[in-house]
Each structure stands twice: as structure tokens, then as C-alpha cells.
Write a protein that binds this DNA or RNA. Structure first.
Lengths: 200, 200
DNA sequence: TGGAAAAGTTTCTTATAGGAAACACGGTCT
DNA sequence: AGACCGTGTTTCCTATAAGAAACTTTTCCA
């Protein structure tokens, strides 16, 4: 991407590319209130090594970093932050309440959000699930990827393979492997509204 | 968390499987129809090095792996997978309303959702934005990736680079390139609640 | 078939990652 | 103050990553 912005903060991001890793790891460790010794032990590495990594005095191996991410619960994608274009570079897409693109399937009635941005990777949509309509629930829904679900209103029960049915009410959320069979029904008097964000 | 924990338990202890990384990289390269030479050049590494990585004859540095992920468009979280195609394969993670993991930054007060599943690719969280608190808004927030935002309650204004400020109320949503500078303030009398889903 | 060019693998060498131990620094006891 | 932690840094050494070039295998066309 061409440098759209005259803002100098862009370069800061790039320049810090190298420093980024050490900084993140140090922050994560301190967040947990761990010493170098403790964190090192948790990750199975020496404290001197960890010190050098945090101070960017070394280029750790992937293996070491992976162990650290595990021990420190680091968000892995953030570690890969580096300069470069995104396919939706510099764009945004708004959908006002109720203005999404309707999509009705036999089983659900969806409202697709932010459909202008076709190249986006996540797919957000809101589903209205009819009250106590159990009839439809015959077979699992299954599609490769991951899914996040947030209950906006009403009460629903989420069924997933390998697990017990899960009763959810407004404000509750679930994250699951959508390759696992799943399905959702309303269990309240009113229709339930659920926000899904799907990622292939 | 709630009394009953249907959550995942991370007890998968890996048996030093380096096979995974090399295999994934080789697949990604062949997917693109590239030779070692071409892929190496794209990533800025030698073809011999790449060969050794693909055959798991070496433990590459994080730096090298990162360059490869970029050149080959690899899904970064998958690289951290221990065994099997996906770490969250056949799993789910629930967070009941208000039971997320608090994370306070200087600028925002977040509630991270579904944090048990550390290897997930999307990061959902709820932010409470204090009413009419404009003071904090000094510099853009910027992080590589994409972001989806849904206003749960209250009224907010989303600022993004290259665009005009955007007034949003409950039920509205936006999808944007989070590499673009952005920031959000509340414009209502009450605190606003916003759901974000972030993807690197 | 051959034999050349391309793709991939294996040396070989140099630079450096990673760990043990020594060092430095700051607190906190008596 | 001095001695003694606990924490983080630096030094030193060994193991090994990374690249260049030599070597092997595969591809492909006359």
C-alpha cells in the first residue's frame, strides 16, 4: 500500500518491528507478575535467555517463542504484527441497526452486517431466532472455521457436538469450532436476537 | 466464572512436534506453486534454509518464520498448533455476561471474552466507554488486522482516519481496517457498551 | 532413451542463539 | 553501615541456525 497518511506514526510501527516482540513478552510477563525466573521456568527456558529476548538482544527461535506464548497466554497473531497492506486497507463499512442485508435460510433468518466490504475475513450477522421453535432443529450445522456468538436479547440454547446443551441469556457469549456440529434455538417467550461472527 | 464450567481445559501437553511447522510451510508453498528458490526469495531467505525448515532439520528463528508467514500468507495461529489441524478443533468456550476477563489499559476498560481458548483467531471483547469522556482521545489506536464493532448500548462516535467521525447507537455496527488509526468515545449521558471482535 | 536444466538436499563455514554462572543493582533485615 | 537476599543483566562457551556452494534428484524435451 502506498503511504496514504502523512502521519509519522506509521514509521514508528515499522521501526519497532523488531522491538515489538520483546516488548510484548515483557508486558505479558509483568502482567502476570512473574519474574524472569518464574516465567522462564513456566516456558522451559533460562532466565538469561528471556532477559535477552525481552531486551531484543537476540532473535529467538520460533520454538522458544511458541513456548513463551503458551506460558504467558500471549495472543499469537499480535506477535506477527509487521508492516504491510491488508486487503481491506484503509476502509470501513457501516451498517445501521436493522439495515443489514436480509438472508433467509430454511432454518434461520439472518441479517448480514457490513456487506459492502466483500474482502473482509470475518462475517458478522444478526439472527433472530423465533421463540420456542424447536421444530427445525434436526441436523447439525457444520462449516470449517471458528465462530463467536453473542446473545443480544432473549434466551437461547446452544447445542454443540461433544458438549452438553448450553443455556444462554443476553450478554453471554461463546466461541467454538464451527466444524463441530452446532445449532441454536430460542427458549424464551420472545424471539431471541443473536450476533454471530464467523471466520473461515 | 460461573459455578458450572463447560469451558475447555488446556491439558494438551505437546510432545515436541516440530513436524507440524515444516509440513505446513511446505504445503503453503506448494499451494502457491512456488519453488524453494521463489519462496525463499519472497521471504528473503535462502533456499537451503527453507529446505531444512520444511524437512524439520532445523529450528528456525521466529524472525524467519514470521517472514515466511508473510510471504506465504500463512494463518499465524495455526503455526502454534501442537497437533491436529486446529487447536480449537471440536471445542468451545463460554463466557457468561459480565464474567469476562478484565483488562484495563490507560485508555479503555475491556472485558475479554472466551479467553480460555488461547489459540482462537478472533478476539472478542466488550468495552465500557465512559460517558462523554473525550479527554483520552489523543492518538490513534493502530494494530494490523481487521475489526468488527457492534454497539450494545449507549451512543458512541467512532473516529477513523480517512473518514468523517461516525455517530453510532445501539444496534449499529462497523467493520474496518484496524491498521487505520481509530478511536471511540461515548456521546451519551450513560456509559456506552461496545462489542469488538478483532482479527489479526 | 540421453543429457541439460531445474528443483531439492546435503555439506561446510560463520555467526549467533541459548544456558550456566558471574556480575550488578536494589531492597531489607539486624 | 554491612550482609543477605531477590531480580535482572552480562559474560562466556557450546550447540546450532542460516546461507553459499557442492551435490543429488527430478523434470522435460530433443
Amino acid at each position: 500500500m502506498e503511504p496514504v497518511s502523512p502521519n509519522t506514526e506509521d514509521e514508528i510501527v515499522e521501526a519497532n518491528d523488531l522491538d515489538h516482540l520483546g516488548k510484548m513478552i515483557r508486558e505479558a510477563r509483568q502482567q502476570k507478575g512473574w519474574t524472569l525466573e518464574e516465567a522462564g521456568k513456566a516456558a522451559g527456558i533460562g532466565r538469561s535467555t528471556l532477559s535477552k529476548i525481552e531486551n531484543n538482544q537476540t532473535r529467538p527461535s520460533f520454538d522458544i517463542v511458541r513456548r513463551l506464548t503458551k506460558a504467558l497466554d500471549l495472543k499469537t497473531p499480535q506477535l506477527f504484527v509487521q508492516s504491510g497492506p491488508s486487503d481491506i486497507s484503509g476502509r470501513r463499512d457501516v451498517t445501521m441497526s436493522g439495515q443489514g442485508e436480509p438472508q433467509d435460510t430454511p432454518t434461520y433468518s439472518h441479517e448480514l452486517l457490513c456487506t459492502e466490504l466483500t474482502s473482509k475475513r470475518m462475517f458478522p450477522y444478526i439472527s433472530t431466532i423465533k421463540a420456542r421453535d424447536v421444530s427445525e432443529f434436526e441436523s447439525w450445522i457444520r462449516h470449517r472455521g471458528e465462530e463467536f456468538m453473542y446473545v443480544i436479547s432473549g434466551e437461547v440454547t446452544l447445542f454443540t457436538e461433544h458438549y452438553r446443551p448450553l443455556a444462554l441469556k443476553a450478554g453471554d457469549s461463546v466461541y467454538y469450532d464451527s466444524g463441530m456440529g452446532h445449532g441454536c434455538i430460542s427458549t424464551s417467550e420472545e424471539d431471541a436476537k443473536v450476533l454471530w461472527v464467523s471466520l473461515e
